[in-house]
């Protein structure tokens, strides 16, 4: 007798197997995005020390935006916690082997680093607001006078960004009961995905909020963003071109890592092969190939390549696609990963 069974790892059928809903993917997405923004803005802070003429573009908005996004992400994580009141206990100990413990401590360090760089860039980001807060602008001025401190802030941002980005992947890969996540490549994969999302976000900011729009106030910024959204983007903005190049290299590396991730699992045990088949041909294949690979990586890569060659007009579409694809990547990996555990359990 040959056993024939069809696995139906479908979230609609077996909702119980999916303990994690939307909160964890959103948290991982925002964590990765903030990591990317931290690395890019940290790099910018350091570069700006040497090169005084370097255009600020929208790197300066990144730290303040990161603070907001990280808080939203933490909120999503908090919603997912079973015992919300005991969250402080994470900070009573430090377990070297526990990624959760690492993560909570990294996050604890990320906030001050972000706050420092946000303070540093406040006068450039929101000049009007900075004038109303003389204490903040005085602090920022004092910081700018000590290049060493600025450099340290930049390095701290880059380092913590890398750690945060890798941590969002490692968080999954330490849960060894889920074969799909048993890959050391998840960390770098999520890091580079975060980097490309970060570059895309700055790109998006450059589109919706032009330096020449002269908006200082936040409400002005929102209004001009809405107006700019409907206006065709200016062709060949120098800063955005660099971003497109950077984004394309991040996306290429991400695609390679994704390929290695799949090949690695395919050449592993049968359980791992079956796990990765979930996203290659199984119930998550359509979302994976169409949304993650097609719309999230290959299409923006192509569009940005054509834009860089001036074959097509520069638009916000690639940036939006990269951001959407990055979210889809985490949703698919988290959902398929949880289903992969069930496959093992059934055998």
């Amino acid at each position: 007798m040959i056993e024939t069974t069809i696995h139906r790892q479908n979230p609609m059928i077996d909702p119980a197997f999916h303990a994690w809903g939307w909160e964890i993917p959103v948290y991982l997405f925002l964590g990765g995005l903030v990591a990317g923004l931290m690395i890019l803005s940290g790099y910018h802070i350091i570069r700006a020390l040497w090169d005084k003429d370097r255009a600020h573009g929208h790197y300066v908005t990144a730290p303040i935006l990161s603070l907001a996004l990280l808080t939203v992400g933490m909120g999503a994580l908090f919603l997912d916690l079973e015992h919300k009141l005991y969250v402080w206990r994470l900070y009573l100990t430090f377990e070297v082997t526990s990624p959760m413990s690492w993560g909570s401590w990294i996050l604890l360090l990320v906030y001050p680093a972000l706050a420092a760089s946000a303070l540093l860039t406040l006068p450039q980001t929101f000049p009007k607001l900075a004038r109303r807060l003389p204490f903040c602008s005085r602090c920022a001025g004092a910081l700018h006078d000590c290049p060493r401190v600025v450099q340290a802030i930049g390095f701290a941002n880059m380092l913590l960004g890398v750690m945060l980005g890798i941590y969002t992947g490692i968080l999954l890969s330490t849960l060894s009961a889920r074969p799909l996540w048993n890959s050391a490549l998840l960390g770098p994969l999520f890091l580079f995905s975060g980097l490309s999302t970060g570059a895309a976000t700055i790109h998006l900011l450059a589109h919706v909020r032009r330096p020449d729009s002269g908006s200082d106030d936040f409400s002005d910024a929102v209004l001009s963003a809405l107006v700019n959204w409907l206006r065709p983007p200016a062709p060949g903005h120098v800063g955005t071109q660099k971003l497109e190049h950077a984004d394309n290299s991040f996306l290429t590396v991400e695609l390679l890592l994704l390929g290695l991730f799949i090949v690695g699992l395919l050449s592993s045990t049968e359980v791992h092969q079956r796990a990765v088949e979930l996203i290659l041909t199984g119930p998550y294949a359509a979302a994976f190939w169409v949304l993650v690979v097609g719309c999230g990586i290959v299409l923006p890569l192509t569009l940005q390549f054509l834009q860089a060659q001036h074959r097509i007009r520069s638009t916000v579409v690639p940036a939006l696609l990269v951001i959407g694809g990055s979210l889809a990547l985490r949703i698919v990996i988290v959902a398929a990963g949880q289903a992969s555990a069930w496959t093992v359990a059934s055998h």
Binding site: R231, P232, V290, G294, C295, L299, L303, L306, T315, V317
Partner: peptide, 20 residues
């Protein structure tokens, strides 16, 4: 239809017909 949006955008971009 998702593909129709993508294909339409690609063709429009390549023919310089993207315009609000």
């Amino acid at each position: 239809v998702l593909g129709v949006f993508v294909g339409g955008f690609l063709s429009g971009a390549l023919a310089n017909r993207l315009k609000f």
